[in-house]
Measured scan of single mutants.
Amino acid sequence: LKKVVALYDYMPMNANDLQLRKGDEYFILEESNLPWWRARDKNGQEGYIPSNYVTEAE
């Protein structure tokens, strides 16, 4: 899975979204639905995130 790091905080707009915290790492599960990607956080929560809020992890 592709790993990304959040560049900004993101508060979910609806139940399908995943909250982002700046500096945290996330795994990308699906990239087909631009600009929204399906992601999983370190706690196993899954949801959609804005792809322009993250960058690929080193």
Rank of each mutant, 00 (worst) to 15 (best):
E56L: 14
A15G: 10
W36S: 07
F27W: 15
G23Q: 03
Q45K: 15
V54Q: 00
V54E: 02
Y10Q: 03
D9Y: 03
E31C: 11
Y8P: 00
L34S: 15
N43F: 13
R38M: 10
Q19N: 07
E58N: 13
Y48K: 06
G47Q: 01
W37V: 15
E30I: 07
L34N: 14
A39V: 12
A6H: 01
K42C: 06
Q19W: 09
L18R: 00
M11V: 13
A6Q: 00
Y48L: 11
E58R: 07
N14F: 11
K22R: 11
E56P: 14
P12Q: 04
E30Q: 08
T55Y: 10
A15W: 10
V5H: 05
P35M: 15
N43K: 09
T55P: 02
G23C: 06
I49S: 00
N33H: 12
N14I: 05
R38S: 06
V54M: 04
V54C: 05
Y48I: 07
T55R: 13
W36E: 06
R40I: 10
K3T: 09
V4Q: 02
E25W: 14
D9C: 04
E31G: 08
D17M: 15
V5N: 04
N43I: 07
T55S: 10
R40A: 07
G23H: 04
A39E: 01
Y48E: 05
L1F: 12
S51R: 13
N14Y: 12
R38H: 09
L7N: 04
S51H: 11
L34H: 15
W37I: 14
W37H: 05
N14T: 11
R40K: 10
M13Y: 08
G47K: 01
E25V: 15
A15L: 11
E46Y: 05
Y53P: 00
Y8L: 10
Y53K: 05
A15D: 13
S51M: 11
A6G: 03
I28W: 00
N52Q: 10
V54W: 02
E46F: 04
S32L: 10
D24E: 15
W37N: 04
T55H: 09
R21K: 14
L29P: 02
M11E: 14
S32G: 13
E25C: 12
E31Y: 12
L18E: 00
V54I: 07
W36G: 05
N14A: 10
E46K: 03
A57Q: 11
G23R: 02
K22Y: 05
A6T: 00
E25L: 14
E46A: 04
I49N: 00
P50L: 10
V54P: 00
Q45V: 13
D9A: 04
Q45H: 14
P12M: 03
P50E: 03
V4L: 04
A57F: 13
D41N: 10
G23F: 04
A39C: 06
L34Y: 14
W36L: 09
P35S: 15
P50S: 05
A39F: 02
D41C: 03
E56K: 10
Y26D: 00
L34A: 15
A39H: 01
D9N: 10
Y8I: 08
S51N: 06
K42E: 08
A39Y: 01
G47R: 01
M11Y: 14
A57I: 15
E58Q: 13
G47H: 01
L29N: 02
W37E: 04
G44H: 05
Y26Q: 00
K3E: 03
L1N: 07
K22F: 05
Y26K: 00
L7M: 10
I28E: 00
N43A: 10
D17E: 15
N33Y: 10
D9Q: 03
A57D: 09
V4A: 04
P12F: 02
M11C: 12
A6V: 02
K2H: 06
E56R: 09
E31A: 12
M13R: 09
E25G: 05
N52P: 05
F27S: 06
G44Q: 05
V54N: 01
A6K: 00
P35Q: 15
R38Q: 06
V5G: 01
D41M: 02
E56T: 13
I49F: 06
L34T: 15
R21V: 15
L20H: 00
V5L: 09
Q45A: 13
D41R: 02
A6L: 01
D41K: 02
V54K: 00
Y10S: 03
D9K: 02
L20A: 01
E58T: 14
Y48N: 09
P50H: 08
S51L: 06
N52W: 15
E30K: 06
D9H: 04
A39Q: 01
K42G: 09
D9M: 03
M11L: 13
L1P: 08
E25N: 08
R38E: 05
S32R: 07
Y10N: 02
N33C: 12
Q19Y: 08
E25R: 05
E25Q: 10
P12G: 06
P35N: 15
K2E: 03
K3H: 06
W37S: 07
N14D: 10
E25M: 14
K42H: 11
F27R: 04
R40S: 06
Y48R: 09
N52F: 11
E25A: 08
L7W: 03
A57K: 12
K3R: 13
A57G: 10
G23Y: 05
R40P: 01
L29H: 03
N14M: 09
N33T: 14
E56V: 13
S51T: 06
G44M: 05
D24W: 14
E31N: 09
D41T: 05
Q45N: 15
E30Y: 10
Y8W: 13
K3A: 05
K2F: 08
R38I: 10
L29K: 03
N16S: 12
N52I: 10
D17F: 15
M13K: 09
L20K: 00
F27P: 00
F27N: 04
L1I: 11
D17I: 08
P12C: 04
D41Q: 02
N52H: 14
N52T: 12
N43P: 02
K22D: 03
E56C: 09
L29Y: 06
V5P: 01
L20S: 00
V4R: 03
G47N: 01
F27Y: 14
G23L: 03
S51I: 08
N33Q: 11
V54T: 05
Y26F: 05
E31M: 14
L18I: 05
V54Y: 02
Y53A: 09
V54S: 01
A6W: 01
V54A: 02
A6R: 00
K2Y: 08
Y48G: 03
I49M: 03
R21I: 15
I28R: 02
L20G: 01
M13P: 07
D41S: 07
K2R: 13
N16Y: 12
K42L: 09
E56F: 13
I49E: 00
G23P: 01
L29E: 03
W36A: 06
F27L: 11
N14C: 11
K42R: 11
V54L: 04
T55E: 11
K3I: 13
R21D: 06
T55N: 07
S51V: 10
E58C: 11
E46Q: 05
P35L: 15
K2M: 07
E56I: 12
P50D: 06
R40L: 08
Y26L: 07
S51K: 14
L20T: 02
L18N: 00
Q45Y: 11
L34G: 15
N33V: 10
Y10A: 03
L29D: 02
K22W: 04
A6I: 01
P35K: 15
I28N: 00
F27I: 12
N43Q: 10
Y8E: 08
D9F: 03
N33R: 11
Y53E: 01
K2V: 05
E58W: 13
Y8H: 10
L34W: 15
E30W: 10
E46C: 06
D24S: 08
L34R: 12
D17Q: 15
I28Y: 01
L20E: 00
P35W: 15
E56D: 13
P12V: 04
L29C: 05
Y8K: 11
S51D: 03
F27A: 06
E58I: 14
L18S: 00
E56M: 13
N52L: 09
L7C: 07
E25Y: 15
D17W: 15
L20P: 00
Y53Q: 05
E30M: 07
P12H: 03
E31I: 11
Y53T: 03
V5C: 05
R38K: 14
